[in-house]
Design a protein around this nucleic acid. Structure first.
Lengths: 141, 141, 141, 141
DNA sequence: TTTT
DNA sequence: TTTT
């Protein structure tokens, strides 16, 4: 009975960091900047940047490890998740992350990769963190 | 390299129609109304209603067949698809549909079902038209 | 060059708290719960709830003050904003909020208000935190 | 009590066509392609392209006229609207359009404009079809 | 820490 | 054809 959806288009702050759990599952973290520019009451242009903590798991994490680079403009769809943890003084702290479920690299191919792409399928289409029911070809849609 | 996403909250116009293909796959069609009210230049309140053709396949179609009823307020997420077909005069015609990928029944339980719900899990949570990678319990998220 | 969008459908955790700035501007805060249920690896049903900090300003805040109540199911559209502040030990802390730009009360009227509505126009249509260019009636759309 | 939202990232099919009504209001039409690639049951890669009819009004139309070009990758947010009209045989026909409310040009500047941009503010930030309440600088958000 |  |  609920919807928890985030849609972002922004620029990657740093090359993603990927680590692998003991069971081989990949987890990828990086931050994504979205910016808004407006004129303040003095007529000066002000840019306000938001930094979003993105987390990808499994296949999305592996793809991000290979293809996502600092500075790229990407589309991310995901869910909000607020984790809590204890800081060094034992105080409960909260961090809000975007648990990514889908990702797109935007702009032209030449933008995103200086080298020729060896796996264009992966790089150029939406990648979703799920085993989507593959549409079979014999259905009329 | 693209995103095609529709998000609707509206009211179901009629009980969904479901048919089953020879291979047992369910297909469900119904229309969903979204309305906007505004004041025109004469200060009169005007309501403008849009009717959306919704199509669900497989499990989503089966769930809609069982639980979705005329008048219900639901959330639908999906993609735009424009089909073409020939009318009786052989003229090519186009129909735009929302290929639903996720659905929610909104409002309280009592709103949506006069009878007690025998399968609350199905009725009260998001249902997606995909075999989502079930989150396993041994992962720290 | 960026998009920062959040779409939530959830239940209001408490009656909204509204305060008015010296210039008369209303600010409204409340938390909104979204829940997901899944089966863990032992086959047990587990519900995971996320709490979102919602902030409304101006007209949206005033409408929320009047109509939004604990328990209601609402739709919220907005942007992610992470504020930083100093805790009592002078440590920089971060809080992520949803700066709401649009809101809808869902479900039937009877769900959302025990008393008769004195201002149904306000309560029953989308309210956006902007002075939208009102569509004039003489345009063909 | 409803939500009617479309979010697209795709490529512009042709340079937008803009016309001006007698009252000076600009209306802009163009089509936007979104594509999906999947493997069919024979393991062949199939690309399915959807064409969306986009309509912009007023300022968005004027900006599109100046900056949006065939081939560009853009983000469009809007609403679904189905118009009906009579074809030459007097038959009622339907056309579904996306009434755009917000637009972004994606990718690097060099992607989208071969010439230097004379109005970077307009071209590089989100443009919404509304007179948004300008955030004033004296509010703490 | 990004981008324009 | 819905809903308020």
């Amino acid at each position: 009975m609920s919807v928890n959806k985030v849609i972002l288009v922004g620029n990657v702050g740093k090359d993603p960091e990927v680590k692998y759990l003991d069971n081989g599952v990949a987890v990828c973290n990086f931050s994504l900047a979205t910016s808004e520019t407006y004129n303040n009451k003095n007529g000066e242009k002000v840019t306000q940047t938001e930094w979003h903590n993105i987390v990808f798991w499994r296949k999305l994490a592996e793809i991000a490890e290979t293809y996502v680079k600092k500075g790229m403009q990407i589309y991310v769809e995901g869910q909000l998740r607020t984790r809590n943890w204890e800081d060094k003084d034992g105080v409960k702290r909260y961090t809000t992350e975007i648990f990514g479920t889908s990702m797109q690299m935007l702009g032209r191919k030449a933008d995103n990769n200086s080298e020729p792409q060896t796996n264009p399928e992966v790089a150029q289409h939406t990648v979703a963190d799920s085993t989507e029911a593959e549409e079979t070809d014999d259905l009329p849609f």
